[in-house]
Structure formats: C-alpha cells, structure tokens
Design a protein around this nucleic acid. Structure first.
Lengths: 112, 112
DNA sequence: CAAATATACATAATATTCTTATGCATAATA
DNA sequence: TATTATGCATAAGAATATTATGTATATTTG
C-alpha cells in the first residue's frame, strides 16, 4: 500500500467508506479511486484488496454481483445494511486513532 | 493495544517519539506513560513491546543499559543518533498517513 | 503489426506485527 | 496470605499485508 507501515489495518476502513458513498464499485475501480484521491500516495495491491473484499463479503458487510462488461468480468460490490453500520464504527475508530496518536505525539493535543 | 486494528504498525513510532523526548525510559515505564497520555485508550502489551524494543536496539536506533532498582531489574533504553533521525521520519509518516486518510474519508480534505 | 500496457480477477508463499498465554521473580497492598 | 503491581521475556497463533505468479481480454504505442 505504501512504504509506511501505518496503513496496515486501514484497508477495511477505506473499502467500506468508498462503498458507503457510491452505489457500487468493483475491485479494480477501488484501486484507481484510491490512487486518484490520494494523488498516488496510496496504491492498493491486488494481493491485499481481493482477499479483503472476499472477507467483507463473507462477513455480510458487502454483497457481490458479477457482470460482464466489454467481454471482461467485473465483480461489483455493494454495501449491505450491516456494512453501513460497520462503516460508521470504522470511521469512529479512525477519528479516535488520530486523536490518540496526536495526544501521544503532540503535547499540545490533550485527550478530553 | 486496542480493539481497533488501526494501531497496528504504530508501536515503533510511539516508542521512538517517547524516547526522543525523555532522557531514558524502561519498558514498563513506557506502558504506563502511554496509558496515562491516552487516558487508558491505549494499553501496550508486553508481548508487543519487548520484541519491538529488542528490534529497535538491534537496528541501532536504541541503546540499552541494565540497572537494578529496588532489587528489581530495569532495562533503560536511550535513543541513538540514528534513532533521532528515524523518529523524524516516523513522525512525518504519521502526519502523512493522517492527511491521506482524511482525504480518503473526508471529502473536505484535499491533498496538496 | 507486434509488444507493451491497462484492465480484471485470483491465490500461494512469505514477512511483519500483534494477541494471548505462559514463565520467572520481587515488592506492595488488601 | 493472596492478589496486584512491578519488571522482564518468549512461544504459539491470528491477522494483515507484500511479492510473485497465473489467467485472460482490450487498448495503446513504437
């Protein structure tokens, strides 16, 4: 994803957030969207993305629909109701993580 | 460390930053300091901390000095010169991570 | 037109980091 | 006296990602 190890554990949050905003997306589309939004700073590798999507689907957070476009296969992922709830949790966790790290790293930020 | 997976990969940054600020600290002291600064949100487990300290020492980012205090052993860690450089890198990576995640998650934050 | 790149999915071997469990030992507190 | 706190350590396992590889079609470039 990046040379920085900090992104480890963030992929699920990213996928859920993007799918929560759009009607549906397919894997390759997600990699391109992330590259675009982060100005190339973050590149999702396939070896990380596809297993993550499969896991989210198995957990019932995403639904999948296969379509053939231009004679090529696409697996469209769509967020489920529990996926939307989990997105909210993940975004809270992210905000919390950022606040906590700033409290640790920047003496000016105090929790509470 | 926390129920949130986002902290994965952050421990090295935390250790280096704390040691960069103080003269020297020992392992147990680090766990208590983190608990205090984060109001209990983050608890460093020994199974994560000690291997991480050993690795940083092996990489030459920390120096170690063993002392006996109150008949109990303490291993004091002190940051080295290259440890100070690496702290700076890690803090830049953290700031970058936060900016990137906000760009992904919050449409109001744009990179550049 | 052939070669390279882009699109599109997938998995397996390996690396890294952390959790959980366990172990040893002393000091302080309930 | 039993539990908690202090203080270190490692091993088994889980989770997540990297790197490499495989398959296949479409498009672009030299």
């Amino acid at each position: 994803m990046s040379n920085s190890k900090l992104y480890k554990g963030s992929l699920t949050t990213i996928i859920l957030k993007l799918l929560n905003e759009s009607d549906k997306m397919y894997g390759y589309e997600i990699t391109q969207k992330v590259k675009e939004l982060t100005k190339g700073e973050l590149k999702i590798t396939e070896g990380a993305l596809y297993p993550a999507l499969h896991k989210l689907e198995a957990e019932g957070l995403l639904d999948v629909e296969v379509k053939k476009v231009d004679n090529r296969l696409r697996k469209y992922y769509k967020i489920t109701e529990s996926g939307t709830k989990e997105t909210s949790n993940k975004l809270n966790e992210l905000a919390n993580y950022i606040a906590t790290m700033q409290a640790l790293v920047n003496p000016k930020f105090n929790l509470e």
